[in-house]
Design a protein around this nucleic acid. Structure first.
Length: 801
RNA sequence: GCCUCCAUGGCGGAAUUGGUAGACGCGAUAGACUCAAAAUCUAUUUCUAGUAAUAGAGUUCCGGUUCAAGUCCGGAUGGGGGCACCA
């Protein structure tokens, strides 16, 4: 059989008959299946894409046969640094590169027969789409959720560009190898931290797996503690946050951030200015992650001439600069209790500082930390009136006392920070803000959107790190929408995350020219039922998207606070050497080659069969061939088919078991076992010598979601109407259990015999049969039977002594 | 460093959630068909001993709970993912 011809034939049939069109407002129950839309890179579709798209495609195809109005859309996440880099390197406008790449991707997807509703396709780079991304940014701004702030960025002075932490790893620029410095930049920020609590609570309204929820919870990073004011000798004060206020008597120094405001305020009074400035200079070269690593957290320098006062006992203690404290996180200062915090302990040893123990236990070699002492009834020491209280009592009593003194407050602290929303890049959505010399920052009028990216070829980086847009005068110069004066546009663009934070809403109503999506459409679809994507996106992308949706909900623009119900993450397809596929390693498999040589159905089937969907799996062409062999077996079954239009009676049980298994497995993303069940059914059919038309049709139907082309073709050849119009089969619970089962007989938990017995046999009968087995007798003879445990329809365990 | 997930034959993996470890597939070995090869079909395939029945060992390692542990608990080792400008 010519797979290529069959594939093209059915792909054409599906397209011409609008088989996969989702209808807004349909009477059928809605079912929204989503895969993360890809970034259309020049490399073309990856076999990893094929894995997740096939998985969701199989689910979509089954759900349609089950009577659902299925929305399975596809689009393009095409803004971002890679497209810009590609453009600079190849002297091609990113717009053109993206268009060409999308064409390739789409052709590849079509060749694999994915049942996307292409009528809803869009790219985040379409003005029709980013108009609404900009419109939503204006909503953030108008509701006080967007603001400008000065933030440090990784800067490469050679490449004249801002770098990600990844590209700046180890303090050197990934591209040119020169040292990376920290540079202050004025950036647009979204007040995501305001949503910390809501984003935590919202998880209750989702069906995410526990580990996905945990990822979100940890990212938000809530901790309850105390914020305490600390006076400086000779005037001034700062505050610190701690979750361990019970150790307050153990403070022997404070550490403040080298990049914070406080050190600058204190500068005139600092005696060792040169030393301090040198340290500030050094730490500005390190990224946040390098700074906070525990084993590197011991560098620091004392701020001489200035002491802080421990508010609980009035003791004067030194202040240090330490780069493990970040200026833009928390209060930019921490209290240090070396006896009860390992990092402080090591810091104290390194800098010869006092260690004062305030909780009972051994602190001679390392700190006694909170996980060592909490919840164990351990008592305080060296803590004035609190000495002798348990840690838990003291926590409360000390907090109350400090509160009464008016120098401390109970607060919740969140790790999650505001979202840095500016990028100094060309290839992103322009931020629709105008800086007027008289009015300050003024939002564009909504009716003037979209603010188009200028259609010029000047996207190379600027000398000073401004966005390439800053060089384009026709873009920059404009009139203030408020007063009409000459003004200048914001030249930063949005991060790639912006467009992907709400695209799933647009798919619900993709051609709407009046709104980003109508409330009616969003109410009809309700939410994304299954959202599939990569592991690497389960924390941040999902959090950004949830934040965006919650904001839109709060201003009345979407119907629910959470618009994504279930999130699943697929494992990667690795190269056959078990490493990530990459050109440099030469282990890349191109899906086109596989489709041409083995057919789309074989590739789809193999990728579903290769392993647990949520785990990484290495590519194996041998295993792929095994899947081809399976499809050939299914084709050959046609030769033993009779025209009998009933099911074979003796295949009833295995058939009903397979229906149940495949249906459940497709629902639960257990594709590898669904395929395995179909292989077992096929093997049974083969042994059976003849099968009826009905038997064969059932197999083709169950296999159809995974291998749609060949099953449609075979189904047509045996005279049926297309499977795409079928109703999905249902199993009969009365026909999945055999009337006998294999009873497993154990003695002391070890299997000593197996015997075929009737289903539903009584406990007494089972015991009698079990004890009568020769091999069992050997092991129980002359021993006392302590007890006998029977598991219904499964096993019996005789415990002897 | 912090958070998190994972670890089962020669290989990919399965195990109804505490109840037969190794389903299904690959590979390998032997046989059938063939002048031959490929394809296909049949049989065997966790390890050790045994012709076999069967016995012993066995799910990264150490320990625990239980009649029963791949599954639950404690600890260790190794690997993947995330850590805020790659997406």
């Amino acid at each position: 059989m010519n797979t290529k011809e069959i594939e093209i034939k059915w792909q054409k049939y599906w397209k011409e008959n609008n088989c996969f069109k989702a209808i807004n407002g349909s009477k059928k129950p809605p079912y929204y299946i989503l895969v993360e839309f890809p970034y259309p890179s020049g490399a073309g579709l990856h076999v990893g894409h094929v894995r997740s798209y096939t998985a969701q495609d199989a689910k979509a195809r089954m759900k349609r046969l089950q009577g659902y109005n299925v929305l399975y859309p596809m689009g393009w996440d095409a803004f971002g640094a890679p497209a810009e880099q590609y453009a600079i390197k190849n002297h091609i406008h990113p717009k053109e590169a993206v268009q060409a790449n999308i064409k390739t991707f789409k052709g590849q997807m079509e060749s694999l027969g994915f049942s996307f509703d292409w009528d809803r396709e869009f790219s985040t780079t379409d003005p029709d789409y980013y108009k609404w991304t900009q419109w939503q940014f204006l909503k953030f701004y108008k509701h006080g959720m967007a603001y400008k702030a000065t933030m440090p960025v990784n800067w490469c002075d050679t490449c004249k560009t801002v770098l990600s932490n990844e590209d700046a790893a180890g303090g050197v620029c990934e591209r040119c190898g020169n040292p990376v410095v920290q540079k202050e930049k004025s950036q647009w920020m979204l007040k995501m931290s305001e949503y910390s609590e809501d984003l935590l609570k919202g998880l209750d309204d989702t069906n995410f797996a526990d580990r996905v929820k945990l990822g979100q919870i940890n990212w938000i990073g809530k901790s309850s503690g105390v914020e305490m004011d600390v006076d400086i000798v000779g005037g001034g004060k700062f505050s610190v946050f701690t979750t361990c206020i019970e150790t307050v008597y153990g403070i022997t120094f404070f550490v403040i951030a080298p990049d914070g405001k406080l050190v600058q305020e204190l500068m005139p009074r600092i005696e060792n200015k040169d030393e301090v400035n040198k340290y500030i200079e050094e730490s500005s070269k390190k990224s946040a992650m390098d700074r906070t690593e525990l084993n590197k957290g011991k560098t620091g320098v004392e701020v001489k001439g200035i002491k802080a006062i421990n508010p609980i006992n009035g003791k004067e203690v030194p202040i240090f600069l330490g780069d493990f404290v970040l200026g833009d996180y928390g209060t930019g200062a921490v209290m240090a209790v070396p006896a009860h915090d390992q990092r402080d302990f090591e810091y104290a040893k390194e800098h010869n500082l006092d260690i004062v123990q305030v909780i009972e236990g051994d602190v001679s070699t390392c700190a006694l930390e909170k996980h060592d002492y909490l919840g164990k009834g351990i008592k305080l020491m060296n803590s004035e009136e609190f000495t002798g209280m348990t840690v838990e009592e003291a926590k409360e009593a000390i907090t109350s006392k400090l509160e009464k003194l008016g120098i401390a407050r109970r607060v919740n602290n969140y790790k999650m920070r505001d979202w840095i929303f500016s990028r100094q890049r060309f290839w992103g959505e322009p931020i629709p803000m105008i800086n007027c010399p008289h009015c300050g920052w003024v939002p564009m009028n909504e009716e003037d959107l979209p603010l188009l990216l200028p259609d010029v070829a000047e996207y190379e980086p600027t000398e000073n790190g401004e966005s390439p847009l800053a060089k384009i005068e026709s873009f920059v110069n404009c009139k203030c929408p408020k007063c009409g004066a000459d003004a200048k546009r914001e030249t930063d663009t949005m991060p790639n995350w912006a467009g992907s934070s709400w695209y799933f809403l647009r798919f619900m109503d993709a051609r709407n020219q009046e709104e980003f999506a109508s409330m009616e459409a969003m109410k009809y679809w309700q939410h994304v039922d299954w959202y599939n994507g990569g592991m690497e996106h389960t924390a941040r992308h999902l959090l950004y998207a949830r934040f965006w949706v919650q904001f839109l909900y709060n201003i009345g623009l979407v119907p629910h606070k959470e618009m994504i119900w279930t999130r699943v993450s697929h494992g990667m397809v690795l190269g056959s050497n078990n490493e990530k596929m990459s050109k440099s390693k030469g282990n890349v498999v191109n899906p086109d080659d596989i489709v041409n040589e083995f057919g789309a159905d074989t590739l789809r089937l193999y990728e579903m069969f290769m392993g647990d969907y949520e785990q990484d799996a290495p590519w194996s062409t041998d295993s792929l061939k095994g899947c081809k062999r399976f499809i050939d077996k299914v084709i050959k079954l046609k030769d033993i088919m009779t025209s009998d239009d009933n099911y074979s009676k003796d295949l009833e049980i295995i058939q009903n078991q397979t229906i149940k298994k495949v249906t459940n497995d497709l629902d639960n993303m257990a594709y590898n076992t669904a395929v395995s069940a179909l292989m077992i059914l096929t093997n049974k059919y083969q042994e059976h010598q003849t099968i009826t038309k009905k038997d064969y049709t059932l197999l083709l139907t169950l296999l159809n979601p995974i291998a749609p082309h060949i099953t449609e073709e075979l189904n047509e050849m045996i005279g049926n109407t297309p499977i795409v119009n079928f109703t999905w089969p249902k199993h009969d619970d009365n026909k999945i259990v055999d009337n006998t089962f294999t009873l497993v007989v154990q003695v002391n938990g070890k299997v000593r015999g197996k015997i075929e017995v009737e289903t539903g046999i009584s406990q007494e009968e089972i015991e009698t049969i079990a004890k009568d087995l020769d091999n069992v007798k050997k092991f129980i003879e002359g021993k006392e039977i302590v007890k006998t445990i029977v598991v219904a329809n499964k096993l019996v365990n005789i415990v002897v002594r």
